[in-house]
Amino acid sequence: MAGSAGDGEFGFQIAPMLDILFVLLLFFMVSAGAQKHEASLTTELPGKGGPSGSIPVQIGIDSDGQVNVAGAPLDSPTDSDLPQLVDRLKGVMASNAQQPVVITPTRSTKHQRVVDVLNACAAAQVKNLAFGSPSD
């Protein structure tokens, strides 16, 4: 090393470059592992499609998270999987795949609970989904 420096020729030092490469690689590997995978639940807002012939299924969500279909409560307010709602919606979709579903949360319902219901609709493959005006 001293010899090459003394000779006035600068050789390309590959060892420090490898060190830096390894550190960069480790950094990106670690940050890639900590990454969260985002997904999406899409819905069309009212106003684009015309009214459909069939009466929509009304899903209400209380401020405490209690889900009800046409006034009848389903599942517990803390159950995020909503199995009873999924079964009910699957039954409805089996008879009419285009059956519209309207979700009507209260104004103080938590977004997580709305997403739980949207998730249940996605599991039951609901195609026509809309949001009703929030009830108080």
């Binding site: 985002e38 997904a39 999406s40 899409t42 819905t43 069309e44 807002l45 009212p46 106003g47 949207l118």
Partner: peptide, 18 residues
């Protein structure tokens, strides 16, 4: 969502975590 509708945007997507 009402604002989106008022602005003429008809498709809304909710970002969630899997």
């Amino acid at each position: 969502m009402s604002t989106c509708g008022g602005a003429g945007i008809s498709t809304v997507t909710f970002a969630v975590l899997i």
